[in-house]
């Protein structure tokens, strides 16, 4: 653990004053650790990485890290990131976003970035609630769950993030949790390596709001429950459907090869030379 922690410290911004904005026990810090270890493992130069985020708890992540960082408006991280990537295709662009930011206000940008198959890695930290504004339900809040704006239980349905991303055209889609850290490190590493639009749903805990409002326990209990409720995709394939009810599947949902948007645009530029 000590060794892993050292890696994170190497990538923290020296000038940025801590402590961070997250509640003690929040899973976002774990995702930040996974991201840093993935980048460190891939040995990508810091100058060649741009982190882009929107608004919300998860979107505060880039400010702490020593890369090019762009903290944008609510929901629009992928649209800003598209500009960064197309203008500078050599840049590794990684978007850090949350369930409200990416799927509600930013839902349109999410499906269109996937449709274009632009080489952006999206790390979607899903804690099933709006944390920064104080616990309102989000597009991933389970039906009948409680939030400050669903005091009688949520009457809406959840998005299934992997299905949404695959249907929209993403090249790589995976889900991990903040309990299964080693796996999350790997998924993020693969996603960054993938040429095309890649999505990693990082399932996380918001004990402060979701946990409190739904009697789901504190941070330790919520993260511990992930261990119990998760079934890897490979194992699930051999299990009867009734055993999967109420369980969360993790692993790689899609990993396909298809033409990437910036590559196609560069080919266009090449083909127009001298014309």
């Amino acid at each position: 653990m000590l060794q892993k922690s050292d890696v994170i410290h190497q990538y923290l911004r020296p000038k940025k004053a801590f402590p961070n904005v997250w509640c003690p026990g929040c899973g976002i810090g774990i995702v930040m650790g996974s991201l840093v270890r993935a980048i460190d493992k891939l040995q990508i130069a810091r100058d060649d990485i741009t982190l882009v985020s929107g608004i919300g708890c998860s979107s505060r992540l880039p400010v702490y890290l020593d890369f090019n960082t762009l903290h944008t408006t609510h929901g629009r991280a992928l649209a800003f990131a598209t500009g960064v990537k197309l203008a500078k295709p050599k840049m590794k662009v990684i978007v850090i976003t949350g369930d409200g930011d990416c799927l509600a206000i930013g839902g349109n940008h999410f499906i269109h970035a996937a449709r274009r198959n632009i080489d952006i890695t999206t790390i979607l930290i899903n804690n099933m609630i709006y944390g920064m504004t104080g616990g309102q339900f989000s597009p991933t809040t389970p039906s009948e769950s409680f939030a400050t704006t669903s005091p009688y239980g949520n009457k809406e349905n959840q998005f299934d993030i992997p299905k949404l991303a695959i249907a929209a055209g993403a090249s790589y889609v995976a889900r991990g949790t903040v309990y299964h850290v080693t796996q999350l490190d790997e998924l993020i590493t693969e996603a960054i390596t993938k040429r095309g639009f890649s999505v990693v749903e990082a399932f996380s805990n918001c004990h402060t709001y979701y946990g409190r409002l739904n009697r789901a326990g504190d941070a330790v209990k919520m993260i511990d429950d992930m261990k119990k409720n998760v079934i890897p995709l490979k194992a699930a394939a051999k299990m009867p459907p009734e055993k999967l009810e109420g369980k969360m599947l993790t692993g790689v949902f899609a990993d396909v090869e298809k033409d990437e948007y910036c590559d196609r645009y560069d080919q266009l530029i090449e083909s127009l030379k001298g014309k």
Partner: peptide, 27 residues
């Protein structure tokens, strides 16, 4: 594209404005 520049039709005007800011940050 004839001079190596980039054109993109975004999904709406919000995204268009966002994309040009992102691009401007790269120079």
């Amino acid at each position: 594209p004839k001079v190596g520049g980039k054109f993109i039709q975004m999904e709406d005007e919000i995204a268009s404005m966002a994309a040009i800011i992102g691009a401007a940050c790269t120079g």
